[in-house]
């Protein structure tokens, strides 16, 4: 197995054993979709593309928030406990370490988001009778746009958590989350195509996600071992 795979696999195993993170993640993944589904069903009628667009709009913020939740375990805990220092002494480059952890965060965050989308779709279908799960653009959204945004969020938040002290991290975590959410809402409002899901909206969101992922890589490349070690509490 590659070094990246070893690191990612370990982060996933550790995340799955962290009950508090799993429970809060699952509550968020189920509670928010159910509440959203009631709103979607009430306001969207039975127009398939409108329903799919509403579900797509919900899944991106959920995915980003899941990335934030799982980052707390993979990056912040490692730093708070000081165990990151031992990892930095292994023959693994800092970039590989960051990538492995970001993947290890993104995979459980993505799976939880898929669960969230399934709950939303089931709830909306149940309430409206419209077959939203079969909408191809929604499937493309879940298969491409959502994982790219989750990976970007995990990478950016992870890099920030490595580079900043504990107090700054508490503040910056929320800034990043709200920044992502406002960006998603802003893009969905600005892109023409109406309230329903459209190829244009998905293309713009995918491009923005890839740009954010590239930005995360650039920022992670600026983080040094010295910076990480000097901000260990």
């Amino acid at each position: 197995m590659s070094t990246l795979g070893i690191i990612a696999g370990r982060e996933m195993r550790v995340a799955l054993r962290n009950r508090s993170i799993l429970i809060s993640g699952l509550i968020f993944a189920i509670w928010l979709p159910v509440m959203s589904a009631m709103g979607i069903a009430a306001g969207a009628g039975e127009e398939v593309t409108t329903l799919a667009g509403s579900i797509a709009a919900v899944t991106l913020p959920v995915g980003v928030f899941m990335g934030y939740i799982f980052c707390a375990d993979a990056f912040l805990r490692e730093k708070r406990d000081g165990t990151i220092e031992t990892l930095l002494c292994t023959p693994v480059s800092l970039r590989c370490l960051w990538e492995g952890k970001a993947v290890g965060v993104a995979v459980p965050a993505y799976l939880t988001t898929l669960l969230s989308a399934a709950v939303t779709a089931a709830a909306v279908t149940g309430l409206t009778g419209a077959p939203v799960a079969a909408e191809p653009l929604l499937l493309a959204h879940l298969a491409v746009v959502v994982p790219v945004w989750i990976a970007a969020a995990a990478g950016l938040i992870g890099a920030a958590q490595l580079a900043l002290g504990m107090r700054e991290n508490q503040i910056l975590g929320f800034v990043l989350i709200f920044g992502f959410v406002f960006l998603i809402i802003g893009l969905q409002q600005v892109v023409p195509g109406g309230p329903g899901i459209s190829a244009t909206t998905e293309a713009v969101l995918a491009a923005a996600g890839v740009a954010l992922l590239a930005l995360a890589r650039v920022i992670a490349g600026k983080v040094t071992k010295e910076r990480i070690v000097r901000t260990i509490p």
């Binding site: 690191i7 195993r13 550790v14 054993r17 000081g82 165990t83 220092e85 031992t86 023959p91």
Partner: peptide, 26 residues
Amino acid sequence: VLFENNGLADRMSAAGNLAYYAGLYG
């Protein structure tokens, strides 16, 4: 290297922790 915090994950087994580092060091 051994720092004061031992570099171990509490939520992994003893063998699991060693296996992780064995993988990183090849």
